[in-house]
């Protein structure tokens, strides 16, 4: 500390607040008058802005379009309203600031600060008051009260937790189930048409959902788990083990479209590289290797749906998904 202290003594001196310099508006009445006019012009401009807003609101239909350079063809109603409002507000602000800067006193004022700390006596008094208050309440002397109060307060904290219980049902094994069962037909999304293998050319994709019985409506909760992407390629392009190969049908392979990372719809299929890309976080999956992750943050392949054809030649699921679809959760594997 001694080092810095000696330096403080040797400081260059504070010359003090510089002398006040008068503005032109302080000394020259013409300049002051001009500033006054400028402020008035700004306020009048603001009034014009509001008039533009009123005019646009009443007289410009929202189907009118005008061509504005740089912006292009733009909705005149919206633009008139907005610009009117912007001009009205901005000019009020600019006028007020200009007024304050040029015509209101600009002499700086110096005010002293005070340390926030109370003096020692007050602090001691405060501590004493608290201590006395606590002593008077007798908390220290009556541990029974203290303990039961603590327990009561702690327990009452459980109330909101309990009352919030009915926010939703328990997940149970809901997250692990989809509507895919052995024999469920794959139908187009949207359109709900069943698909035959020969409907898909090599290199084709199709967005599908499980077929629902007549009258059963498909909700977003269903789509969020059931969406499946069909891809057809040449069977020899697959690089699958025999089990996974048996889940394909004539070069058609089916994956859950719900990303195993965070649940976005993964359907950016590149026919040339046979890669699937998720647009949200760019996880990349290799379709030929059962959607193995080859890039990005996803840790697991997309679940593959085993497919085959039914007696009428339509594509159906061989079995439900062998694992839960969508993002990971704690009990996913249990």
């Amino acid at each position: 500390m001694s080092n810095s202290e000696s330096r403080e003594v040797d400081l260059i001196k504070d010359p003090g607040l510089p002398a006040h310099v008068h503005r032109r508006t302080d000394t020259d009445p013409v300049a002051a008058k001009r500033a006054e006019r400028q402020v008035a012009i700004l306020f009048s401009l603001s009034a014009l802005g509001t008039l533009l807003l009123i005019f646009s609101f009443i007289f410009i239909s929202d189907e009118t379009f005008i061509f504005i350079p740089v912006m292009g063809e733009t909705n005149a109603h919206q633009l008139g309203l907005g610009l009117g409002m912007a001009i009205a507000l901005f000019c009020i602000g600019a006028g007020a600031i200009h007024w304050a800067k040029t015509l209101m006193p600009d002499e700086e004022i110096v005010v002293q600060r005070h340390e926030f700390r109370s003096d020692d006596e007050d602090r001691a008094d405060f501590v004493k008051t608290v201590k006395e208050g606590a002593a008077n309440a007798g908390l220290g002397r009556r541990p029974l009260i203290k303990r039961t109060l603590g327990a009561a307060l702690g327990l009452s904290g459980l109330t909101p937790l309990l009352l919030l219980r009915d926010l939703g049902p328990l997940p149970g094994d809901d997250l692990k189930k989809t509507h895919w069962k052995a024999g469920t037909r794959l139908v187009t999304d949207p359109g709900d048409r069943p698909i035959r293998p020969e409907d898909l050319e090599i290199g084709a994709v199709a967005q599908t959902q499980p077929e629902f019985p007549e009258g059963k409506e498909r909700h977003l909760e269903d789509i969020a788990k059931d969406a499946v992407l069909l891809i057809r390629m040449r069977p020899e392009e697959f690089n699958l083990d025999s089990e996974r190969l048996s889940w394909t049908h004539e070069g058609i392979i089916a994956f859950s479209k719900i990303c195993s990372h965070m649940g976005c719809a993964v359907a950016l299929y590149e026919q040339t590289t046979k890669h699937l890309l998720c647009p949200c976080h760019q996880s990349t999956f290799d379709v030929t290797r059962a959607a193995k992750v080859i890039f990005g943050p996803a840790a697991r392949p997309l679940p593959q749906l085993a497919i085959t054809v039914d007696a009428e030649g339509y594509l159906v699921a061989q079995a439900p998904f062998s694992e839960p679809v969508g993002p990971s959760f704690w009990g996913r594997l249990s």
């Binding site: 187009t188 698909i195 084709a204 994709v205 026919q271 040339t272």
Partner: peptide, 14 residues
């Protein structure tokens, strides 16, 4: 299905 784009068959996308 030019380049990376897949084919959209007439049966699945009429």
């Amino acid at each position: 299905g030019p380049q990376a784009m897949p084919v959209f068959s007439d049966k699945t996308l009429t």
